[in-house]
């Protein structure tokens, strides 16, 4: 009920105020190149002062807190040539502007497309998934990033474009620590390639966060090839427990040759928990993260076994 009884409003006037939409970051120069080469030129010219802006879902809040103070932003959102996912042969190519939300429905047939879809739904909230990018997550290398653990579990490859041309690097060599990667000055992560595993593979993913959409306190991504009733290849990646995603190699080895069972899943989960060296923070003491590793590895394995 409108107590004033005025005529209904047909449109809402857009309102501005001087204080509301304030700029909080430190000053920076902004460039929006149209091609990858232009972007690389900008990176070369500005050196370490420059940061790439893709989805901005991590960078922009950090800048608002003035914890990140790049003096140059290279916005790659206009480089439409980078906005793709392509299944080619037995690999999936993911361009630098592929958004998280694109993966919510499988981008490829088979176990990898299904796994990516499952993982995508666990990334933050829907609005963030519309903007944030797959490659941006890999470049940012947050220890709790779902994509980082996933790419590690799948044995993905990263394609870097730089002043001296292109180079490839394996996911296992990419992550070096919290927000730290093997990227070199002037380089940009242009593409990630994932092997399109054949249907003999089964995947599983489990993560734990206190609230829907929060950074996961711990996650496990598993990929298992089963042949003749036994596990032949096993990869278990853990995220959120230390400075970078890591493989639970001993737990994976323990499964080789075994048929899937609840008991073996528990055993491997206990092994992964015993081997890991979790960090302590206000959200989760190390002991608790170890509990979560046990639980998430068991759940991810159980899921893969049932797939």
């Amino acid at each position: 009920m409108d107590p004033v009884g005025a005529a209904p409003l047909l449109c809402t006037p857009f309102r501005t105020s001087s204080v509301g939409p304030s700029m909080k970051p430190a000053a920076f120069d902004y460039h929006a190149p149209a091609t990858l080469d232009q972007a690389l030129d900008l990176l070369r010219n500005h050196g370490e002062e420059a940061r790439i802006l893709a989805g901005g879902q991590s960078l922009v809040p950090t800048m608002a807190f003035r914890m990140a103070r790049p003096s140059v932003l290279v916005d790659i959102n206009r480089i439409s040539a980078l906005a793709y996912t392509k299944a080619e042969g037995n690999s999936l190519r993911i361009g630098a502007l592929a958004r998280h939300a694109w993966f919510e429905t499988p981008v490829a047939a088979g176990p990898v497309g299904a796994l990516l879809a499952q993982v995508a739904h666990s990334i933050a909230h829907a609005p963030i998934r519309q903007r944030g990018t797959f490659c941006g997550s890999l470049a940012h290398a947050d220890p709790a990033s779902e994509w980082c653990a996933t790419v590690l579990a799948l044995g993905g490859t990263l394609l870097l474009a730089g002043p001296d041309g292109r180079r490839e690097i394996a996911a296992a060599d990419w992550f070096q620590g919290v927000f730290t990667t093997a990227i070199e000055p002037g380089e940009m992560l242009a593409e990630v390639r994932l092997p399109l595993l054949d249907p003999g593979w089964r995947c599983g993913f489990a993560e734990f966060s206190r609230r829907a959409g929060d950074f996961a306190l711990t996650m496990a991504v598993v990929a298992i090839r089963i042949e003749d009733g036994g596990m032949r290849e096993v990869r278990i990646a853990l995220g959120g427990i230390g400075g970078r995603p890591e493989l639970a190699s001993r737990a994976a080895a323990l499964l080789i040759g075994q048929p899937p069972s609840a008991a073996i899943a528990r055993e491997a989960a206990a092994c992964a928990a015993a081997d890991c060296d979790p960090q302590d923070d206000i959200h989760a003491p190390a002991d608790y993260r170890r509990d979560l590793v046990r639980s998430m590895v068991r759940r991810a394995l159980t899921q893969a076994f049932a797939a």
């Binding site: 409003l9 809402t12 105020s17 001087s18 204080v19 509301g20």
Partner: peptide, 14 residues
């Protein structure tokens, strides 16, 4: 309708 008037809506010129 997004037409509530909060303090931040009254700061024009400040």
């Amino acid at each position: 309708r997004g037409e509530g008037r909060f303090t931040a809506d009254t700061t024009s010129g400040a």
